[in-house]
């Protein structure tokens, strides 16, 4: 239990170890710790920012979807309207054409009927003249009796 030089020796080695620790051990380790702390803080902040950005993007997507949906509905409605218009127009045109065709056919028919009737009348006239000639034996001259025949024809 004697106090002796060991005390001084211990003090000297203590001083050396503390100095060494102060110069070569403490600074790099504590610096790495600080750096890692900073990194982690940075990482957490980044994650927070990322989450926020994702939320924003999601909201944006939602609005864009809604816009798109509205636009699609509008387009569909417009298309429907256009289709209806086109159908109506086509139907109108078809009806007009049909009427036109029908009218033309009617007119043709009328004309033909008139032609046929005329023709028929003529034929009946000539038939009648023919018949009369045969009965009268050539006394009927077409030229001299033309007036009569025509009158007859008209009466048919």
């Amino acid at each position: 239990m004697n106090l002796n030089l060991t005390l001084v020796g211990q003090a000297i080695s203590f001083a050396i170890f503390v100095t060494f620790c102060m110069k070569y051990v403490w600074p790099p380790v504590i610096q790495a710790l600080r750096e890692r702390q900073e990194k982690i803080a940075q990482g957490l902040a980044d994650a927070e920012k990322g989450a926020q950005r994702r939320e924003e993007a999601e909201a944006e997507i939602e609005t864009m979807l809604q816009d798109a949906r509205a636009q699609a509905a509008e387009i569909v409605a417009q298309a429907q309207k256009q289709r209806n218009e086109m159908i109506d127009k086509a139907a109108g045109e078809a009806t007009a054409k049909q009427e036109q065709i029908a009218a033309k056919a009617m007119a043709d028919l009328d004309r033909e009927v008139v032609g046929a009737r005329e023709n028929l009348r003529k034929q009946v006239g000539s038939l009648a003249v023919d018949g009369a000639r045969r009965i009268l034996g050539g006394e009927v001259n077409e030229a001299s009796h033309g007036q009569v025949i025509d009158d007859l024809i008209k009466q048919i």
């Binding site: 004697n2 211990q10 203590f14």
Partner: peptide, 12 residues
């Protein structure tokens, strides 16, 4: 357990 050692440090 050597008083010289502990006192050496505490005196430092």
């Amino acid at each position: 357990t050597d008083i010289n050692v502990t006192l050496g440090m505490s005196i430092s």
